[in-house]
Design a protein around this nucleic acid. Structure first.
Lengths: 212, 212
DNA sequence: AAGATAAACTTTCCATCGTAAAGATTGCAT
DNA sequence: ATGCAATCTTTACGATGGAAAGTTTATCTT
């Protein structure tokens, strides 16, 4: 046995499941999703490479559990922005979008795991509920801004808002929108706001129309 | 040797480089980017697993070359829509966006390789030029719609247009916008158009403002 | 035409990965 | 105290990417 930490680690870890989730997050951030290995997680947690199997069926199951945690944080990031914003429905929707972008740029590895990877299994009920909660936060903000409870009628507005924030997040994270990295943080936030205001639903109408 | 095709294959393939690119595209479409293997490509091309090394430094280099081909197709898809649209600058920009979505939904595996993977090396000059060509098509359409040649001034409009089409493409491809799969193709195209018109630049002004 | 050189391809080999199977250790219920 | 189940380790296997060395073919030189 190669007990790295000095020798007196007990045979039973105690909270390996949780330790593995933390290790997986580190591994993901350092190696990226394409360099992620289950053995690396085990080593970080100080256990043998086969130990994770007793807590997660396979590597994808570990990443599925991690994705569920990440969705909760996404929801929290949106709620944090929402709490700081004015109560006005439009401001609230913009805040939700900014929270989405906050999370995506603060946790690019997790964001990629959640949205640009086949690893997480969305049929898993825990992940499914976490993802649905995040989605609902967005939907409710759109409906409020639109002044309607009809989710179907709001569908194009939901799509517009989500596509815009998601597109910004993806492009910024992959470094393709270099204009943003060139600006200071304040200016960047201001541009984000302006972009998000562009996809606000226009109360009363169905799908909002452009000016001209 | 296990010559699958019957026995009289010559020792030298003749055009293995090209055959590997085709094989890689098939492999990518069938297995997905996370199931992609270099050995699988070699088998498809009917050569030993070490043969690709003589044409591509490693697996990433093969995918980089494939990504360059894919960018050319993306540019072509945008050009095809552009050619069919009216000459009006706004219609042209919408067409570019629809072409982008056309490509993304027709070739989800390639699209993922290009935008949601660390595999391709964008410092490769061939890929770099192909990607730049696609980007320029977008930039020029935005500038034309804005009625300005100042690319810096148009930056937020470029970001808005690109983020919207990219967001739609990503969310549709990952099956997260189920409302779209529910509609017929005609209705879907119409909604795409409506969404894209929402991010058109407004000539003269800097960043366009919402209605209210 | 003949031999040398380079290119294309195969074979063999190695480290790493995920995961299955079996053995060792410990906690817990009875 | 004893037995069982959970937790963890060790061992083993097939697959993968890539390095190294050997084989075959093409091309170039003379």
């Amino acid at each position: 046995m190669d007990n790295v930490e000095g020798g007196n680690r007990p045979y039973h870890h105690g909270d390996l499941r949780h330790a593995l989730l933390q290790a997986a997050e580190e591994e993901l951030k350092e190696k990226g999703i394409e360099g992620f290995t289950l053995r690396g997680c085990a080593k970080r947690a100080g256990v043998s490479h086969a130990a994770p199997a007793h807590h997660f069926r396979d590597a994808d199951a570990l990443l599925t559990a991690l994705a569920a945690v990440a969705y909760a944080r996404l929801t929290a990031a949106m709620a944090a922005r929402s709490a700081k914003a004015k109560e006005d429905a439009a401001d609230q929707l913009v805040a939700i979008g900014l929270g989405y972008i906050d999370f995506a740029t603060a946790e690019p590895a997790l964001f990629k795991l959640m949205f640009s990877s086949d690893k997480p299994d969305f049929s898993d009920p825990v992940l499914g509920e976490a993802a649905t909660a995040a989605y609902k936060a967005l939907v409710e903000a759109v409906c409020a801004a639109k002044g309607s409870d009809d989710e179907d009628a709001a569908a194009p507005d939901i799509a517009a808002a989500w596509a815009m924030v998601h597109g910004i997040a993806e492009l910024v994270n992959s470094g393709q929108l270099r204009m943003f990295s060139a600006m200071g943080p304040g200016k960047r936030q201001e541009v984000y706001r302006t972009l998000l205001r562009r996809v606000l639903p226009h109360p009363g109408r169905g799908v909002s129309q452009p000016l001209q």
